[in-house]
Design a protein around this nucleic acid. Structure first.
Lengths: 352, 352
DNA sequence: CTGAAAGCGCTTACAG
DNA sequence: CTGAAAGCGCTTACAG
């Protein structure tokens, strides 16, 4: 009574094998596999048991060929230079797709607006993806969004800045993360905290800045104007900001940079000025990119929930259980995922 | 009699459409598509024309279902922490696969040796990949290589250190790159050049070091023993090495670090000691990882031909035109790809 | 709630 | 060198 022995060894079992073992037709097996409601619980159970017993795994290619669905999800991004952000997201999305029997098709959307539209259209019409994920900053390209809508393909945006009522999206709470990170510094005894703002074109810059401001205010701490520097997210811009901050009259005891590259620059400048991090200066960054754990001291930073974002996006796209713009309410479209504060070696309690 | 009009607009054309337009059978079209020799040049041409006219693209799923091939290539790696190396390779492999109608299945091989073997076996038996690519350092796992051989699936290793006569592999000439990079420094007038060796367990470390030594020797330059430091490829190890090098009696005018992380550390230490890079000290790295272009000054480094390696590996695996261990000659198994010297801002001509 | 038939777009063997 | 037939493992209508 062990059908396992055979199917376990060489031959891969098919829907036909499962049907026979369960004593039903292929059709019924197919229904159970696709979560069709119209199957009796009893039958459903029988089929599931048989499938498990045989270690049955549906053949995606056959599925794809027979059905209208492609079992492909598209991932579109604009700029790969964001230090691993794209690859991190891709790795996670890949994993989620595999678990669900889907495949990920990744495409870089570069060039002129016309070329971007062509790439997007090809992905939908040639590859026939069942859904598309748009990474920032590409997800703010309104023409693309409209095209996708016209093509009638579901899409999810990741951390968008604009048109927040138009389509579902996943994001993290940048404001809250900056708020909490600032509080962390304050709890460590810091009062004189400087801030380097991120690139003005990126929406998250504003939110991070506001979170910082509100945390300071709620602790009744004042911020001298010379403690605020405008950066551009680049290491180089962090260098000039840090120089200004660390050579002003009343040097801060902590600097909050809006991303890790700029935080790394702060540490470098501090180094060259003979200021010890974290003994004389605490530094925090944002993003938890590789550089945060490459340089020494490792940077205390905010870790974006990239893996969870990818998983959530794939889940929404593959189950089809989300309202593609059906609701106007932001709360129905927005999926906020939890961030994490990574406390490392670039911060310490202030010495009094 | 114009099947074009219909198939050109919305409906995707199939092998049947191509066959009709060319006036042959589906079988012949299939043969042409798969580069079967046994088709007359005349017919071949007709078919190719028809296919082009219809913008025909074979349906991979149908192909996969009907044939013994899976049109999947597996990519196995062990350690994702190598700062983007895996993702860079993956991106390139993805692209090459897409062009050939293949799909890439990426898997991290972690855990115990038994778990690694299981993951590898699953990839071959479940996903039925047509070939496997093994990234370093995973490609040096001999048990895995034997398992793959037993499973009878072709595999290509990337920059392996061991068993170089066992299977085809792609690599770059680490020795030559280090040799040329050293020469570049010498041409810029440097004579006092220090070297930070890479991790002792990695084969490339030895080759890079040897390339450096031979370049120095061939220029009749001597290397005082205090100019050689052992590193571990980590930023932190670069820090200690740099401190030793920059505080010794006769400070070098250039430091060659065996990777970018350590080169970044050298720059950081130089900064903190008030030594200007590149005016007083030239620094070069190796790999061209993101950190090389993140920090300031940007690091002069050796760019590995990751894209070309990925393309070569995929090409070998998909055309099946390589000798899977048929030859004992290293030259037949080894595919050496060209590196590139990236001259940036961390080096300059020595002032006399 | 369940099933028999047809077909998705290719390729594999078998003829000729 | 070329083709007619069967089939890969699923799903989509269509019945009942």
């Amino acid at each position: 009574m062990s059908p396992i022995s055979k199917s376990n060894s060489k031959t891969k079992s098919t829907i036909q094998d499962v049907a026979e073992l369960a004593g039903v037709s292929k059709m019924t097996v197919s229904r159970v596999l696709n979560n069709d409601e119209k199957v009796s619980d009893k039958t459903r159970l029988k089929v599931k048991e048989a499938a498990n017993k045989l270690h049955y795994r549906p053949n995606i290619s056959a599925r794809r060929l027979a059905s209208a669905k492609s079992y492909f999800i598209g991932l579109l991004y604009e700029n790969p230079s964001q230090g691993g952000y794209v690859s991190q997201f891709m790795m996670s999305a890949l994993k989620s797709c595999r678990q669900r029997g889907y495949h990920l098709v990744v495409d870089e959307c570069e060039g002129t607006q016309v070329e971007k539209l062509t790439i997007t259209r090809d992905l939908v019409e040639e590859t026939r993806v069942d859904g598309v994920i748009l990474l920032p900053p590409f997800c703010n390209n309104i023409e693309i969004l409209n095209e996708l809508k016209a093509l009638n393909v579901p899409y999810i945006r990741v951390s968008p800045d604009v048109e927040l009522t138009q389509s579902p999206f996943v994001c993290m709470d940048d404001y809250q993360a900056a708020f909490e990170m600032t509080n962390l510094l304050i709890e460590q005894g810091h009062r004189d905290i400087a801030f380097i703002i991120g690139h003005p074109d990126v929406g998250a810059s504003r939110l991070r800045y506001q979170g910082f401001l509100d945390a300071m205010r709620s602790n009744k701490l004042t911020i001298p104007p010379e403690y605020i520097e405008q950066g551009l997210f680049s290491y180089k811009s962090g260098l000039s900001a840090a120089k200004a901050l660390l050579t002003c009259n009343n040097m801060p005891t902590a600097i909050f940079a809006s991303n890790d590259d700029m935080a790394a620059a702060v540490i470098s400048v501090a180094n060259s000025l003979g200021i010890q991090v974290p003994q004389q200066l605490s530094v925090v960054g944002y993003d938890d990119t590789p550089i945060a754990t490459t340089i020494w001291p490792n940077i205390t930073t905010v870790k974006q929930p990239i893996e969870a974002m990818a998983e959530a996006a794939i889940a929404m796209l593959t189950t089809g259980k989300f309202d593609q713009g059906l609701s106007d309410k932001l709360s129905d479209l927005r999926h906020v995922l939890d961030f994490e504060l990574k406390q490392r070696d670039s911060t310490s309690r202030v010495k009094s």
